[in-house]
């Protein structure tokens, strides 16, 4: 209106109108055909839809192909250590309720080297979105078996095929105390993926989203049949679940009703993974305790109050 620009006056104006370009940093360096590209697009779209101020948004990652993600966002980012995205993200969020925190992790990062932190991050239930890029293989180190590789996966560590059954990250997460949001999607179903990420962002607590992700270089044979097979996916549908419109939903052959408030049922549905890829919201509980509420409960203590408290303690030691 009247062509007034925000910097025209001294009054701080909200940054109305962030566009996708305001979130996109350098060209992503993942392989062509990698599922991570789709996820990046979807996340940038979410930021735009939600108009997240880039300076108030932090992407924290570990190490691995997926963990390069923060470099491709024009927000704050923390590309740390292998397996350690969770503790860093929790530390970022603890006293900064104003920040929007995303954790970007992979199957090796989350379910293997960082598995201990995964367990506790679920229990802390701090308000953040966790995107597990699960391509069932170690990509950056060139094709080693991952904890989510299906049994028999041929890799450089197991040329005869991997010998242990994989971890089911959905089932494992559902088994943890204080779990509050567990969903799954697939990178080649962008509409469902985006609806899932939206739902995860809106959840007050830790939203754990496992994204089944193609690795065209090392796991081509594994994903190709799944991606092409219309029977390979089952949608978990519910009015409180991931919202797809009629048209989107009609593209899937297998749709089951699943109430995301039912934890016991969620654990049953999580086992579908053996025959099909179930996508949708497994479980949500908005009433769980949040450790970031505890972390922020005493923000803003004045210097006088601090001095008073410390001197009271010091009095105990006085002679």
């Amino acid at each position: 209106m009247f062509d007034i620009k925000p910097d025209f006056c001294d009054i701080e104006m909200p940054d109305a109108g962030y566009s996708i370009e305001d979130y996109a940093s350098s060209q992503a360096r993942w392989c062509s055909g990698c599922g991570a590209h789709t996820i990046l697009n979807s996340v940038q779209r979410l930021c735009k839809e939600e108009q997240l101020p880039p300076e108030k948004t932090v992407f924290v990652s570990g190490i691995g192909c997926s963990s390069r993600f923060p470099h491709y966002m024009k927000t704050y980012g923390f590309h740390g250590l292998h397996g350690r995205a969770f503790p860093v993200a929790c530390g970022v969020k603890f006293r900064r309720p104003d920040l929007h925190v995303f954790v970007i992790t992979g199957d090796g990062d989350c379910c293997s080297i960082g598995a201990g932190h995964w367990v506790h991050a679920i229990r802390y239930n701090m308000n953040m979105v966790v995107l597990l890029f699960d391509n069932a293989i170690y990509g950056l180190t060139k094709k080693q078996t991952s904890p989510t590789s299906p049994i028999g996966t041929k890799s450089n560590t197991h040329p005869e095929g991997s010998v242990l059954p994989p971890i089911n990250p959905i089932q494992s997460t559902l088994g943890l105390p204080n779990v509050s949001f567990v969903a799954q999607s697939a990178d080649w179903k962008p509409a469902h993926l985006h609806a899932t990420i939206q739902k995860a962002y809106q959840h007050p607590g830790l939203s754990f989203v496992r994204i089944v992700q193609r690795c065209p270089v090392f796991m081509h044979d594994h994903y190709e049949p799944t991606v092409k097979d219309p029977d390979a996916i089952t949608v978990l549908d519910h009015e409180n679940g991931i919202h797809l419109d009629e048209k989107q939903l009609s593209k899937f052959r297998h749709v089951v009703q699943h109430d995301p408030s039912d934890l016991v049922k969620a654990r049953e549905v999580a086992e579908l993974v053996k025959e099909t890829v179930p996508i949708g919201l497994f479980y949500q509980n908005q009433a769980n305790l949040r450790y970031d509420d505890y972390g922020a409960h005493n923000l803003g203590v004045s210097n006088e109050e601090r001095l008073g408290a410390i001197n009271t303690l010091m009095n105990r030691y006085a002679v």
Binding site: F78, G80, L81, G91, V92, F94, G116, H117, H120
Partner: peptide
């Protein structure tokens, strides 16, 4: 924290945040 590694990771995250 859940372990020594997480304890310092958390501290670094807090420091990073200000």
């Amino acid at each position: 924290a859940e372990d020594e590694i997480a304890a310092i990771g958390f501290a670094i995250g807090s420091s990073f945040a200000g």
